[in-house]
Simulated scan of single mutants.
Amino acid sequence: MSAAHLGPRIPLPPPAVASPECDSTVKLNGGSVCGPLAEEAQAMAVDARIRELGNRHRTLDEQIQREVTRPTADSLHVRELKQRKLRIKEEISALEARV
């Protein structure tokens, strides 16, 4: 099939180029935010993630406490819960270092 049969050419939008005055752009609700607002939005997202991970960490701690107080505690299950709790703590520490 020749190019004449494909119809008119539609120009492609230019490639995205980072603005020299904005080194922090965040996608928000289908648009982009640049500058201090982008940094604030990103910090808020990180804070929300830290809070969510903190909640998971507390929940795992509660599960561990319940498991170890059972007469027939499953040591393998307790170990897995503790490993998950440690991974979450490490992720929290890494995120806090970024903020």
Rank of each mutant, 00 (worst) to 15 (best):
E40D: 08
L86V: 00
L76F: 09
Q83I: 06
S75H: 10
I64W: 09
L81E: 01
T59Q: 11
E39G: 02
L76H: 13
D74L: 10
H77K: 14
A38P: 01
M44W: 06
L81W: 00
E62P: 01
R84Q: 14
Q83F: 05
S32D: 09
E52N: 09
A48M: 11
H57F: 08
E39A: 07
L53C: 05
H77Q: 10
D47Q: 15
H57A: 10
V33K: 06
R79D: 10
T69I: 03
A45W: 08
V46T: 13
N55Y: 05
E67M: 12
L37W: 04
C34G: 03
R51N: 11
H57Y: 08
D47Y: 10
V33F: 01
K82L: 04
A73P: 02
E80S: 14
K82I: 02
M44H: 10
L81A: 06
M44N: 14
A43P: 04
R79S: 15
R87E: 08
A73G: 05
L37C: 07
T69F: 12
L37T: 13
E39Y: 09
T72I: 05
A43W: 03
G35Q: 02
R79F: 04
Q83E: 14
S75N: 13
G54N: 07
E67A: 13
R56W: 00
S75L: 14
A48F: 02
A45C: 10
H77R: 14
L60Q: 00
I64L: 06
P36S: 15
A48E: 05
Q65K: 14
G54Y: 02
R51M: 06
